[in-house]
Structure formats: C-alpha cells, structure tokens
Design a protein around this nucleic acid. Structure first.
Lengths: 384, 384
DNA sequence: GCATTACATTTCGTGGCGCAATTAAGGCCG
DNA sequence: CGGCCTTAATTGCGCCACGAAATGTAATGC
C-alpha cells in the first residue's frame, strides 16, 4: 500500500493539497477543506475517496456542535503510518527524535559529541537513528543545525561545529540508507510552527529564539522569508540599549550582551560575586534578588525593544518565542512589555506573544518537519 | 469593444493572468509568458488570440537577438487604450496626474489646499479630474494619502489633513462619477514598484521613503506586507543614534530627528546661523561646508543603520529609496555605506539600493497603480 | 538550398471541475 | 412521533481548459 517513494501516489496537485490540508489542520471535514482550497463539495468527495482507499486518510468520527443538519465526517491522516527522525546538532550533543507524520515525538536518543570530525558525528548519528528505527521504517531524516545551509542539504558553514563546505545530507543518506534533508535550525523550527504549530493559521508571524544566541525567523504571506545569508545570525548583535553591558565581540548593549544565556549568567554572577548558571540567574531574579532582578529587567526591556522592532518592521500577527532561553521572556514579562511600549506607537496593536517549550524537543520537531515537508511535497533526495 | 466595467471580459483566471503578465512585463513573447505562468505554448496561443481580437493586446514587432530559429512575436498592451488618474493629497496641495495603463504620466494638475474641509477638497479634486479628463474616458481614480486607510476606500485618520473616519472613495466617486480607490501613499508607491517599477522582478524588496517623515514598505513572497496599523508610520521614530539630535517629540537620534527634511534643514540652519531649506542644506554639504557636511554625515550614517536593520530583519533583494527627500541618500552615500557596515555582518550580502525620482510624480504614479490594479483585478467599486 | 533551430498554431483527447439533483443524517417542533 | 428543515456528502452530467503531438512558420548557418 503505502509506497515509500511518494506520498499521495497521484501527482495531481489538488489531491496533494487536500492531503496536506488534512495533515496540517488535523481532523477536518471535507466541507472545511473545500472552503479553504476554494473547491466545491463534489470535488472533495472525489479527491478524498482515493486517499481514504489508500489508507492515507481515515474518517475519525462525526462532529455536530449542536448545529442542525447532517453532522460532518472528520478526516484525519493516519499519523502513525509513517515515521520520521528529527535531529538537532548542538555544540556538544546530538538529539534525535522519532516522530509521526505530524512531528509529534515518540521517542528520543541523545549522544554526546566529544569529537566534531564529520565522519565521527555521522557515525554517532547513524547509530542513534538505528536505535530509534529498530523494527520501523523511517521515511526520512531531518537535521537542524546552527549555521548556513544550502539546498536543504549542504552545510556551508557551522561555526560551533567547526564545519565548512560539508555535504551533510549526502553523508547521512549514505550512512543510514534513509533520505535526509538539512537546514538551519531556526528555519526548521519556523517551518514546524508554520505547518503544525502556533503559526499555522497566520499569514505572517515572527519567531524569536533565545539561548546561546538570538535567532529570528519570519513568515510573510504564508511563506518563509529567507535569503542566502540566513544562518549568519543577522540579529545576534542587534543594538538594544546604548548604555547596556558589552558583549564579547565589543558591542554595547546588543542582543547578545543582553539576551544570551551566557552573558546573563555571567553578569548576574559578577553582580552577586559567585558563579551561577542561566537558570539560577533567573531563579534569583524571580526570588527577588535585587542585582539579578535589575539585570533581568534590563534584558527584558531589551527583548521588548527587539520585539518592537520586529513588530514595526514586519507587522506579524503573532510572535513565537522559543529556544532554551525562553524562560527569560516569561520571568521578565513586565520589562518586556515596558520595552515594547518604548518603541511602539501607542495606537498600534501588539500581536499576541506565545512561548514554545524551550527544550530540545522543539528543535527536533522542527528538524522532523523538514523531513515531513520534503516527503509530502515530493522533494526528498533519492537514496541511490 | 473595450467595455468599461471589466478588463478582459472573460473572467477566466488564466486569461486574466496572461493579460496582467503582459501589462507588467512590457513587450513580452508568448513563450516567455508560458514559462512564467507554467503554461504550455498552445495555451498561450489560445489565451492571447481573444485578447488581441478585443484590441487589448497588440503584436509589436519581432525580436531575434541574433539567435537562430523563428523570431518571437512580442505582445504588448495598448497602453493608451485606458486612462487613469492618480492623485496625491499633501498637507497643502493636491497633485493629480493622468496616466496610461502602465502608470506613465501624460499630464498634470495641481491645486493648492487652503481649506481642508473634506467637501472643499473633494470639489477641488473633482475639478482637477474634470480638467485632466477633458475629452477622455477615465477608467478609475486612485488616491494616495498619508494616513490610515481601510478597504482601499475609507480614511480612518489622516493627521496632517485633520481627517478622521471619512469615506473618501465614496465621496470622490459621487463627485466625479468615476470609480475610486484610496490607500496610504506608501502602500500605493510600493504597489507601483511591485507591479511596474524596480521591484517587479523581486520576490522581496523594501521601500524606504524620505521627506517630511520616514516611511517603510515591504514586499515579501511577491505580496505586500501590511496590517491594520499600516499608515501610523511605525518606523518614523526608529532609534538610530543614541547620541544624535532630539526630534520634536523628544526622541534622541530617531529617524525623524536624523532623516526628516525639516530637522535636517533646522539643524544645518542652526549650525551656520541662518535659515536654510532642505535643498540648500544639501547643497551646502555637497559644497563642503563643514557644519553641513557633519550633520549630513550623521544623517547618512543613521540612514545606513536603518537600512541595515531592514536588511537584517527582512532580507530584501532590493531596497528602493523614494520620497521628496531622496537626495539625502545620494548626497550622503558614503556615510550611508558606513552606517550600513556598522550593523551588518561582514559576511552578509547587501542588496542593491535604487533611488526613485523624488518628485510628486512617483506618488501620483503610485496612486494610479492602485486604480490600475483595481480595474485589472476587477475589484473596482461600482459607481452606482 | 537544405539542415537546423525555435516560436506559433492546429488538432485532439483527457480529465478536473462545478452545477444540479439526490441521498444521508441529524435537529426542530407541533 | 413523524414530517420538515438544515447541512453534509455523493452521484450524474457536461463543459472546457489544458497539454501532447503534429504541423506550420520564419529566421540562421554552412
């Protein structure tokens, strides 16, 4: 039945977009798909029949919500029918997650990276994949990596892994026999949010990630906004506070100085006279320790000003804050609002801000989303 | 033949997109349209035939460029077949231009605005329209206005005209009998550049306007990026230089303080001890007057930093600088590049920067573009 | 002059689509 | 409780937009 090479068999574009709509919008009625795709009800009967026949879609109960009239039959994808693996490569570890068709995570594997030689990393990666895929068929692998990637396959540069000009997708495909796609981790995360996550109903939204660095992702007119420089981290040193602390690269009050986990931990540590890590620093601020509170207020205001810049320039309908450092936005929420107010016209409407989990899971789901997209859209590389 | 109500008669979408392609891409061969629209050559023969029949398109000679093979027949719109009027409303004048189907200007009318009462302005406007349209049929009127506009028709607020909640399109339609569309002037200008201008080949570009205020327009994924707040001038007080001069609203070194014609003229005037206007200020800087040069260098650097912010956040393939104050960008070009370098990663690629004319014409063409779009896309309001 | 190249057109069959009518499945109400 | 209404899904039907293939057309090149 489910052939591995293509998803919907027929390459008919509207059949494909129906399948994608069900995949992205969860259980959904035929009539609702018809409205979204500007198709007629008969078309939807025609288009869904073969997809149900193939076992790709299933009817999952009815829904009526107390309205009169015939209840709708909800359609859904067989989320378990396919498996994917999403992998996040970090400076010193590798996290791989087995997911279903929606990027929901089934299980995990982690490997410490002590040696960054590509062949060693690829071997570890293949090992984690083998472990996760025991007894299963994995349709595709997605990899997210902090750095510059071309063609969803080729790593141009990844500073913290000290990689340059590496055909990563090809290496992994060879090592695992599974088609593989690679992209910048923030692109992967943004794509996940666009297809399945908090941004799936928006025309425009922005993603801001906090953690070791500060990242930015943008979706406008329902499509990702990227260019060849994406992955350089263009907003990593965005100026936020002319009187703020210095960052290691010598920018005063830049995003790195105010928002990165390292700098926050270092500044709080220096202020209270002992070493603390990022989470302790936030704990102290939350507990009311004055120096920590002050430092985190400054960071929050800086973040607010960054968000104001995002709003003023890209007019998003939603802002999604993610990354390991997301707690900053929550702990310093009041200061964020202050900073936002500072650079926003008082008549302007601020978009809702939503927070992602802030753990490794979201990066893996993002990476898996790349693999899912490639499979569904038929852009997977061949394994030959 | 040319019915006034619709453009392409048949509402067939691909017939319409063929017509739009010819309108936007100037003289173009069938085969090239086929490539752009993902259609086959036979489809193009079929689709163009009735459009030529109607007199909407014409064949304008052949082209071969020294290649072998049958030369291409170039198709073009009968640019003179329709007329439009584009109107820019300013604080104290109204500029109306008669244009052809491509927004190219045929003639002008100007009216001084001494009274801002809507009925008076509408009467003046109708008078200018009557003058321009003598002996001609005008298909639609487009109006560009600095302010907040809804539904391409309804002025929510326009500060400098002291207008609020005014159904301007309706009033003008009633006064002239010609269907009218209204929008923010910068949206109009951006739409012109997107359809006909320097951005017509780009997926993404940004527009920055200089003059009385600082404006910003963005196109991503070939569509305008706007929201309900567009027209508030969200980047008018963008922070650019923490040590810069104050603006009247009390922001230090903001876009207004550094880039607006008024502030530049005032600052140069104060420095040299006599009143100068904007153009004199730029003349002085160009002539090497030290104080003027310094002030304009600071402005140029500020502009550069603004452009850096635009590039970092929206990754445009092109930046178009327009507005009455565009000369600043040219006079202070070196400083602009300095400022740009300041906030850009040295590995990033800067997009080409192009300059618009900087006179009233570009605003009128923008307004006309709104009218052309509405006519071509069939979204014109009825005159009933 | 004939081969080559490439744009344009004609013919023809396929198939995707919507309209209209029909069937299905539940509420609403006297 | 049994029509009636409403909304969803399906079936039948015919239209017509589209591309494949073949043909026509107009240039270059040797």
């Amino acid at each position: 039945m489910t052939s591995e090479s293509t998803w919907t068999q027929r390459s008919d574009p509207s059949s494909q977009s129906v399948a994608i709509e069900v995949l992205r919008r969860g259980p959904i009625s035929r009539i609702e798909i018809a409205r979204r795709l500007n198709l007629s009800a008969p078309s939807l009967s025609r288009l869904t029949a073969p997809l149900i026949e193939q076992g790709l879609l299933i009817e999952t109960g009815t829904q009526n919500e107390g309205r009169v009239g015939r209840p709708t039959q909800l359609l859904d994808v067989q989320a378990g029918a396919r498996n994917f693996i999403g992998i996040k490569l970090r400076e010193n570890e590798l996290v791989a997650a087995l997911t279903d068709l929606r990027g929901d995570i089934i299980s995990y594997e982690t490997r410490a990276l002590t040696d960054r030689t590509p062949s060693v990393v690829v071997a570890l990666l293949a090992d984690a994949v083998a472990e996760l895929s025991r007894g299963l068929v994995v349709s595709a692998i997605g990899i997210g990596i902090g750095g510059l990637v071309r063609d969803r396959s080729y790593v141009v540069s990844a500073r913290f892994l000290e990689w340059d000009e590496l055909p990563l997708a090809e290496l992994v495909t060879r090592a695992t026999g599974i088609p593989t796609v690679v992209d910048n981790d923030l692109i992967a995360f943004t794509e996940y949010e666009r297809w399945f996550g908090a941004g799936s109903d928006d025309d425009r939204f922005a993603v801001v990630s906090l953690g070791a660095g500060t990242g930015f992702g943008l979706v406008a007119n329902r499509e990702l906004v990227v260019n060849e420089d994406y992955g350089l981290g263009l907003i990593g040193h965005w100026p936020l506070d002319p009187l703020g602390p210095m960052c290691p690269a010598g920018h005063r009050g830049c995003a790195h100085a105010l928002l990165s986990s390292d700098c926050i931990a270092r500044n709080v540590g220096a202020a209270i006279g002992r070493d603390v890590d990022y989470d302790e620093a936030l704990d102290l601020a939350e507990a009311g320790q004055p120096a920590a509170r002050e430092i985190l207020s400054a960071s929050g205001r800086g973040l607010g000003r960054l968000l104001a810049a995002v709003c003023n320039m890209t007019m998003p309908q939603r802002i999604i804050i993610g990354g390991e450092g997301v707690r900053l936005a929550i702990v310093a929420e009041d200061a964020v609002q202050q900073g936002l107010a500072l650079d926003r016209d008082s008549r302007a409407h601020n978009p809702p801000i939503v927070y992602a989990n802030g753990d490794n899971r979201e990066w893996c789901r993002g990476a898996a989303a790349l693999a899912i997209q490639a499979m569904v859209l038929g852009t997977l590389p061949s394994t030959a």
